[in-house]
Amino acid sequence: MLKREVAKRVFAKEFEACRELEKSTRSASEAADSKSPNLLISPLGLILNRVFIVGVLTELDSIGTQNEMWKARIVDPTGAFTVYAGQFQPDASIFFSTVQVPAFIALTGKARIYEPEPGSIFISVRAEEANVVDEEIRNRWVVDTAEQAVDRLEAFSDALASGYRGETLREYLLERGVSEELAEGISIAIEKERVPQVFAKQLRASIRQGLRTLNFEAEDTTGAKADQKEFVLELLREMSGGKGIDYAAFVDAAVSRGIPEEVVEEVVRSLLAGGQCYEPRIGIIRFVG
């Protein structure tokens, strides 16, 4: 049966840590099928090829010389996806030729892995379809993706704690209600990583921070601190203008107006993670919209 492949929800941090899923570890029938897609596996055992991402388009370059080729960067609260679209992705290419940077966009694409030499691995997305969306959709995507990642993290911790390996682990996870694909993925991923819990911990921290930037949590900061943040935000909006501002210069300006450096850093960090701000070049901060 020729089924449409599911578009996985995954954060950039987990996505860029993916590695190729070796054919030998797949079931024999699947490996024999030449149409089977190039599958990647994340350190948490997520097996993926097609992905659906929603984030902020912060960079867009036409890098093709003879043929058209677009390279884009899409930022989510945990990191950034590198996306390519060329002449064989006409829908996405047309979209990139018309979109304004920055913007919230939704995109489906297939994961590509490129390893020019051992040890240096580039993971990117080859775009299929893309569209401009609103912040509401982006926020939902973050929550959806976080939910699925947390489900995975919990299954993964459970797997580690169980002490089982291989086939026994797979059966254990199935019994715990984990889907067949993830059970398989986790048992492969655990074999691969020497210290599997390290990545899980990092991802937990990133997701936690990412969710906080959505500003849904009840504000627990005191009024004064909130005012300071508001001030930093206004200052940045004013100073960054159309071109952006040098980060160090901005910190100096804020500190000279009596704002603690930590507060400035915190605000900028949360703006970057939340996608309201981005770095067009390293060290330069620019407002979205």
């Binding site: 921290a205 997701i207 849904f216």
Partner: peptide, 20 residues
């Protein structure tokens, strides 16, 4: 309600330090 789901998720993720 996204806010409710976020609170729920943060709860599942546990406090910052406990992880460590």
């Amino acid at each position: 309600d996204l806010a409710v789901r976020v609170v729920e998720l943060l709860h599942r993720l546990g406090p910052d330090d406990e992880d460590y």
